[in-house]
Design a protein around this nucleic acid. Structure first.
Lengths: 152, 152
DNA sequence: GTATAGAATGTTATATTATAACAGTTTATC
DNA sequence: GATAAACTGTTATAATATAACATTCTATAC
């Protein structure tokens, strides 16, 4: 735990950002949406839709899939979370999406995901696209391997 | 159709490559595996597992999911096909996998996928990884957009 | 040529991921 | 307070994928 970052701060930042974004765009961060975002931000590991569903449910009340998928759709559409396609799982968005699409480093040891912006990589992607005469719109860049922490 | 490439040749090449690879590694390209590979190569569009299953089935005999998933596993493991994670669908492998991982350009108009090797892009990916202290193992690079043909 | 082990296939069942469709409720605005 | 749009509840089902175990096939050793 020694080197662990102050994760509470991540959660707090994420929720604040969400409130700001929603306020700016007149969107409603309803209790379910907020709760789902908070659950996703419990870690930097992608979480599955049905795990969220279980965590949303209590002994008294079991939530149904559309509840969580609707919240996920909202959060995805507004760039507050991302879907990791290679895992069918969801992580909080760590970057500013004025920039280009995200790239993800996914540790196969500890499962943590690091989202990065890499203008150089963007340029390479654009260049490669141009070479194909391809007009890129949205990218899925997921790099699996071993993170710095686990490599030590 | 005027500019259409000779797709029969693609299928033929793919099957020949598969036979060669299997011969070299003492693997068995059994009838089901061969048939699945052939069905996947009917086009350059990713095909879904259950579509393959339907095409494998006849009025007399309906195949079951494990049949197709086992064939897919075999073909994936031996780099004869790839899974497009963002679509849960499968395409034939067009490149030589002595090289690094594949990158896919996926046209959202016509659905065709072009697999490319881009050493420059590989270098950018490696560089970005190094910057994170990340040791890359396997990448999912899927660029969605509009292909040259559809852009015209 | 037969015994044998490993690979491949058949079969049933079920797990996992995601959406459709429609009814009811809440919210913002007029 | 009426209204429309957004949001939520609920039931059902679609789409994707695997587990587990029985059976058959194939290559090799004897």
């Amino acid at each position: 735990m020694r080197e662990r970052h102050r994760h509470n701060q991540c959660i707090k930042n994420a929720l604040e950002k969400a409130e700001r974004v929603c306020a700016e765009k007149s969107l409603r961060l309803t209790p379910t949406r907020r709760k789902v975002l908070e659950l996703i931000w419990q870690s930097h590991k992608p979480i599955k839709a049905y795990d969220l569903l279980n965590q949303l449910s209590s002994d008294e009340h079991i939530e149904k899939p559309p509840t969580v998928y609707r919240a996920l759709d909202f959060l995805l559409k507004n760039h507050l979370i991302h879907k990791i396609a290679s895992h069918n799982a969801y992580v909080g968005c760590e970057v500013n999406h004025d920039e280009m699409d995200s790239k993800f480093f996914i540790c196969d040891q500890c499962a943590e995901v690091k989202e990065v912006c890499e203008p150089k990589l963007d340029r390479s992607l654009l260049e490669a696209s141009k070479k194909q005469g391809f007009i890129p719109n949205q990218t899925t860049i997921e790099i699996h391997g071993t993170c710095a922490k686990c490599a030590r």
